[in-house]
Design a protein around this nucleic acid. Sequence first.
DNA 1: ATAGATGCAAAGTCTTTGCATTATA
DNA 2: TATAATGCAAAGACTTTGCATCTAT
Lengths: 136, 136
Amino acid sequence: MEVVKNSTNHPGVDEIYLRTREKMPHVSLGTVYRNLEQLSEQGYVQKLEIGNEPKRFDPNPAPHNHFKCSSCGAVEDLPFVSIKRLQSEFSESLRGHRIEGYQLTIYGLCSRCTAEQGFNGVSNDTSVQDEGKEGG
Amino acid sequence: MEVVKNSTNHPGVDEIYLRTREKMPHVSLGTVYRNLEQLSEQGYVQKLEIGNEPKRFDPNPAPHNHFKCSSCGAVEDLPFVSIKRLQSEFSESLRGHRIEGYQLTIYGLCSRCTAEQGFNGVSNDTSVQDEGKEGG
DNA sequence: ATAGATGCAAAGTCTTTGCATTATA
DNA sequence: TATAATGCAAAGACTTTGCATCTAT
């Protein structure tokens, strides 16, 4: 089972199921769910919950962040940001709280989709919307 | 319908359904889902997708972040962080990407639960785990 | 033989949808 | 009357679970 997750990017259960069946043609969905759950509990893989999409699994169990392309759907890894830094960002709001972790997903177009859609060649440092705009 | 969301914190569909029924005893779940969907599309409320929990709705439609208490389940609001700042954090990884938005949820114990559980009186600036530890 | 893993399908949770009915302009 | 919203229940997507069977010790 573990080989399946080590071989791909951020597959969903359905993809893992199909890939597993290529090697074990009569494996069942239930088994895939059960094993994936177990593997993530044991820290071999990381369960990803992005929006309300079906779960994905990340072969990298270390905490890190993600970028989700809203065009092609690809999920990329982003580095982990120090919780201390995060906390200083929200120090007023989080006074008295005990922070255990966080989940950050940035949405947008990946570099390939950005290029394809040809937004006047904008790139990372000019394409950012002004904050407070894109939520409404 | 809108009064329901303005009256509470971050209710789930089930809670909104129950509250609505107090005033409109024969409203149906389907109607609640339909109207909530519509209200969030129109920007009156904000749809919240935290982990793989059932959807919640936030009366505040402006983009902002959230803190989820892993003990009592409460969801608190956190201020919005400039996308520009976020981006500078990940400038290397996001080169060429077009950023549209992000979703950040911090997990932990809210101040009430922290106090109740009495973790040696730790507070916001000493309770943080060292980064890279809490994920496994 | 025993303990655990698996296949299969049923069940569960949350959400969406079809359609006749009801309310509103 | 025409248009849109609603109730109700069925259906849908994703996930979990029960149980008999199979595997490995």
